[in-house]
């Protein structure tokens, strides 16, 4: 089982920056595994491995109370994260 590491992101972070942080962390640590929140921050948990994902994960907020995942992506985690200061239900997905 790979080692994991949770990275917290400040709640005021925008959606664009949140996804940019995911790109950076996946480039250094490894693939994003789960999203969530803890202690008033967004909590992103990564698998720490030498193998980096070919395509980066992306977080998308729910729309109309339902998960919204870009076409061609596969969702792998759903929870509430902070987007621009608001706790928002969202999905984490990765392009196929």
């Amino acid at each position: 089982m790979p080692m994991t590491q949770t990275v917290n992101v400040l709640p005021a972070t925008s959606l664009a920056d949140l996804n940019a942080i995911i790109v950076q962390k996946e480039g250094v640590l490894g693939a994003l595994a789960t999203i969530g929140n803890a202690g008033g921050s967004t909590a992103l948990t990564f698998n720490v491995t030498p193998q980096k994902p070919a395509k980066n994960a992306v977080i998308t907020p729910d729309v109309g109370g339902a998960p919204s995942v870009p076409n061609g992506n596969t969702s792998f985690s759903h929870d509430s994260v902070y987007i621009a200061g608001a706790l928002t239900p969202a999905s984490a997905s990765r392009p196929n």
Partner: peptide
């Protein structure tokens, strides 16, 4: 324990990635 991270400037991220890539290699 978890740590808090912010978005890095591109040049800093490039340097971090260069070192960590060497570690992973």
């Amino acid at each position: 324990k978890p740590y808090t991270a912010i978005l890095l400037p591109p040049d800093i991220y490039a340097r971090e990635k260069a070192v960590t890539d060497k570690v992973w290699a």
